[in-house]
């Protein structure tokens, strides 16, 4: 079974899984605590417009995805400021609008769009060495920004109004946050695909949240959970010959459900103990 490790595509995939988990642990934690899951989902799906444009222009679809999700993020940042009331439905507009643009671009591109499914659903087994290096560099940028600005990002994430009252450049920090989400999405498209990106960003972080007392602790837990899920997922997808992205997500989902079950049981036992104490 372990001879599979001799193939470079498989070790690349495992390495990509680890890098993706680190991104998800850090950025996913912000997304979950700031309740930006649907915002991130919108940005991720809007990137499909860029994939389509990439095919049409004959450039790398990931470059197009980066441009489109960047534009979507800027729109989102603007809407966060000026259209709080209709925010939810406007996210839906960005979400569906980007997808529709992508579909039209692909339709008008002559010929067949190769590996379209890779962009939609990801395929970690196709990750190349070059792509790993790009992932690593982007990840380094993300970590550097988060380490340097940790307290400021924490301030705006925790209590926006208060940090504003303190004169924090919260608009700039919010835009930076959105930029980090864009980078994370672009890194992850290869791994799980546009449609499943949001799952990988939110599920390990949500699992971690149940056990973490602080944000950095949550990030570390989420990274470890992500590494476990991606490794098990890649291995299972190879073993059973099923799509890797979806398998990773399903493993993460199982871990999440188990953690909820465990938390509920612990809570119930605690209540039983308290009841027993009160009775006696």
């Amino acid at each position: 079974m372990l001879e599979i490790l001799e193939y470079s595509f498989f070790t690349n995939a495992l390495l990509a899984g680890v890098l993706a988990s680190v991104v998800c642990g850090i950025i996913g934690s912000y997304i979950v605590v700031r309740q930006m899951v649907s915002v991130s989902g919108g940005i991720a799906h809007a990137s499909f417009g860029g994939v389509g444009m990439g095919y049409w222009l004959g450039i790398d679809p990931l470059l197009g995805a980066f441009c489109f999700s960047g534009i979507a993020a800027l729109c989102t940042g603007w809407l966060m400021m000026y259209a709080r009331q209709q925010f939810d439905s406007l996210i839906g507009v960005i979400w569906a609008g980007g997808m529709a643009i992508g579909v039209v671009f692909i339709a008008i591109t002559p010929g067949f769009a190769p590996d379209l499914f890779t962009y939609l659903f990801g395929n970690i087994l196709l990750v190349t060495r070059t792509y790993l290096i790009i992932m690593g560099l982007l990840l380094f940028v993300v970590i550097a920004i988060v380490v340097v600005l940790y307290h400021r990002l924490l301030a705006v994430s925790f209590d926006q109004e208060y940090s504003q009252s303190q004169g924090l450049a919260f608009m700039a920090l919010n835009l930076l946050m959105l930029l980090l989400i864009v980078i994370a999405i672009v890194i992850l498209i290869r791994v799980v695909g546009i449609i499943l990106v949001i799952a990988l960003l939110s599920i390990p972080a949500s699992t971690a949240r149940q056990y973490a007392g602080s944000l950095h602790q949550m990030m570390i837990y989420a990274i470890l959970i992500g590494i476990f899920c991606s490794t098990v997922g890649i291995w299972l997808s190879y073993l059973w010959n099923i799509p890797s992205g979806a398998t990773i997500i399903l493993v993460a989902l199982v871990v999440y459900l188990l953690s909820i079950l465990q938390k509920t049981l612990v809570l119930r036992r605690y209540r039983d103990i308290m009841r027993y104490r009160n009775d006696s």
Partner: peptide, 21 residues
């Protein structure tokens, strides 16, 4: 009510945010 109670943050970290300004 301006923040969520479930936010993973410790008391000390919250008080430190008062130095941000």
């Amino acid at each position: 009510q301006t923040f969520q109670y479930a936010f993973p943050i410790r008391v000390r970290e919250v008080v430190f945010l008062g130095r941000m300004g």
